[in-house]
């Protein structure tokens, strides 16, 4: 009988790597813009190294065996990194499936007996398929991490508190106001009130698509917290549809100063601070 599959892989490690690299380089899915060929080679060498080191004739059909932990770990690292570097799922999937092709080609060249070849192919198939599954799982996890990070970034940048006049802050809210967003809004608003010593804050909700009772509750909370600090809150940017829903839902905003536009809110804020804005009379010159 010819040498076993595992031994075959071990003794042909270098050839296998070359075969695999060739396949990857020839593929139209090669992304040399995201990763240099040297990096790709290093990555592939690590994976093949771990695979050939840990594979034995006994564990080849026992994918669950913890002897493959090292392989899974390296593979997870690779697909996680690829998800973050911007590889597509297809490109990441083909990476591991091209290894399968390379191994199968090697087996085909080395094992002449059809029966033996079939057994070997089946074993390798199962092993590589589970590697494929791991690749996808971690790839998706990597993507989720990216999404999570972006969500945090968005919630940070989407709540800018601007000082529009001495003692007057404005906070344009864009998008839906859920409870975690409300926390961020409240925190940054109240902190800015302390930092600038402002006594009036204008919450502009022109960019909030809809106000339901939950959103209204969040707004009321923000206003109440602002008042506890000793500042007053004006809500501006109330569109007619919002006025309608607020009344239909029976939401009581009567204790809060509401204005249709940011401009009228600012005017109100000026009045509260006993300030007036007026146009200078320009003398008409006759030529």
């Amino acid at each position: 009988m010819a040498s076993s599959v595992s031994q075959l892989l071990k003794s042909n490690k270098a050839r296998l790597l070359d075969l695999w690299i060739q396949k990857q380089l020839a593929s139209e899915n090669l992304r040399d813009d995201l990763m240099t060929n040297d990096e790709l080679r290093g990555q592939s060498e690590d994976l093949i190294g771990a695979l050939t080191k840990n594979i034995t004739e006994e564990n080849i059909d026992q994918v669950e065996s913890n002897q493959f932990d090292e392989v899974f770990e390296i593979l997870s690292g690779i697909s996680l990194a690829r998800a973050q570097q911007g590889f597509t799922p297809r490109e990441t999937g083909l990476y591991i499936f091209s290894l399968k092709e390379a191994i199968l080609e090697l087996l085909q060249q080395e094992i002449k007996d059809t029966g033996e070849l079939l057994t070997a192919v089946l074993k390798i198939n199962r092993l590589l398929d589970s590697l494929g599954v791991v690749t996808f799982e971690t790839f998706i996890k990597g993507r989720e991490e990216v999404i999570l990070r972006q969500t945090e970034e968005i919630s940070d940048i989407s709540t800018p508190v601007i000082q529009i006049w001495e003692g007057i802050l404005a906070l344009p809210i864009i998008g839906t106001l859920d409870s975690s967003r409300t926390q961020v809004v409240m925190e940054s608003l109240l902190q800015k009130i302390v930092d600038t010593g402002s006594s009036i804050a204008i919450l502009d909700i022109s960019g909030v698509p809809a106000v339901d009772s939950l959103v209204a509750q969040h707004l009321i909370k923000t206003v109440s917290a602002t008042r506890l600090m000793g500042a007053e809150c004006i809500i501006s940017g109330i569109r007619p549809e919002i006025a309608q829903t607020v009344v239909h839902l029976g939401i009581d905003l009567s204790n809060i100063v509401t204005k249709a536009s940011l401009a009228s809110a600012l005017k109100h804020a000026f009045a509260m601070n006993r300030m007036v804005v007026r146009r200078l009379e320009v003398e008409k010159k006759t030529f």
Binding site: M186, V194, S224, A225, T226, L228
Partner: peptide, 13 residues
Amino acid sequence: VVGMQPAVAITLI
């Protein structure tokens, strides 16, 4: 009552 901390105000609400 003056000088309430932001975190205290949020918590009270």
